[in-house]
């Protein structure tokens, strides 16, 4: 029983990295921008967060540095894509390539560094509840922050006026422009916010999760986060669930192995991607569903006249 509670706790923790990055990409994509640079942003942020953590001894500073790094890189991407009308996919890929290269380059001397003793958290009282205490209430604050962020983003998108504008821009930038909204600046704000969240995810990975810095350490989490936003049909709540599900698949795979169950791990690993394709096909086949889910201008350039 205890082992399942621990497994649940580990799943929440594993899902948090994906949830943070997924929420960031959600904001990007809600505004119509696909950010294929997520992997590169996360790597740069993981490096920046770790290095800052080493120098300042503060995890918080590490997170801030990671977030800031993510925001700066995303702003570069945003400027190229939104103002200079560069191709979104090519720019994103360039960012991924550059990020993985530059973080390796700059981070080389930090691979031998280490952070101080890692903090241990539990919520007083609640953590004493049998099973649930272990499963839910002994997590790093970032785990709860991710949940809170999902709630805030959901509220923002569906209950606030600015959220409505953001979604309108993602649906149809031309009419939002015609209504007098500064489409480009709002898109840039969305991209920067999203980048900051991806950065936070990267910093959480290197500062708390593994906790170490080595080049290439994000190992594809950025790409899974991209899958996740689609899998979650661009809804914050579903991103959270999907993140735990994707995180859970990996944990389940290891748990089963430890129990001596033999299944080719490759099939479990490809499951999140197949599930994403399945969801995409399901929502796409019906024009009403796709309209209700996918931001219509996703990946399309917006070119105001004049």
């Amino acid at each position: 029983m205890e082992s399942w509670a621990l497994q649940a706790a580990a799943t929440l923790n594993a899902g948090t990295v994906l949830a943070l990055a997924g929420l960031g990409l959600l904001i990007n994509e809600r505004a119509g921008i696909v950010n294929l640079g997520a992997e590169g942003i996360m790597l740069m942020a993981a490096f920046a967060g770790f290095a800052t953590g080493v120098h300042t001894g503060s995890d918080l500073m590490g997170f801030l540095a990671g977030g800031a790094m993510g925001a700066v890189l995303a702003a570069t991407l945003g400027y190229l894509v939104i103002w200079l009308n560069a191709n979104q996919y090519a720019t994103g890929l360039a960012l991924s390539l550059f990020g993985s290269g530059f973080s390796a380059f700059a981070g080389i001397k930090y691979t031998q560094e280490k952070l101080g003793p890692r903090p241990h958290f539990e919520i007083p009282g609640l953590s004493k509840i049998p099973f649930l205490g272990t499963a839910l209430f002994k997590q790093h604050p970032m785990v709860y922050l991710a949940i809170a962020l999902a709630v805030v983003i959901a509220w923002f998108l569906y209950r606030s006026r600015s959220g409505l504008v953001l979604r309108a821009i993602g649906e149809n930038p031309e009419s939002a422009h015609a209504l007098g909204y500064p489409v480009r600046r709002i898109r840039l704000a969305a991209v920067v916010t999203g980048g900051a969240l991806c950065g936070l995810a990267g910093a959480y990975l290197s500062v708390i999760y593994t906790p170490l810095w080595v080049e290439g350490m994000v190992s594809g989490k950025g790409w899974i986060a991209l899958a996740l936003t689609t899998f979650a049909t661009w809804r914050p709540g579903r991103i959270l669930l999907g993140a735990y599900l994707f995180g859970g698949v990996t944990m389940l795979q290891f748990h089963l192995q430890g129990q001596g169950v033999q299944i080719p791990s490759q099939f479990l690993t490809m499951l999140p991607y197949l599930a994403t394709i399945a969801v995409l096909v399901l929502i796409s086949r019906n024009p009403a569903w796709i309209r209700a889910n996918m931001p219509a201008s996703l990946g399309k350039a917006f070119f105001p006249e004049g």
Binding site: Q7, A10, T210, S219, M251, Q257, G258
Partner: peptide, 26 residues
């Protein structure tokens, strides 16, 4: 002895998860 395979020589997040899974199993 319990064994978990990550099918890679180097994948820090996956190594973390595999280690965590072993710890969870006692």
């Amino acid at each position: 002895t319990k064994v978990v395979w990550v099918n890679a020589w180097f994948d820090p997040p996956k190594e973390t998860e595999a280690a965590q899974s072993l710890l969870n199993q006692g």
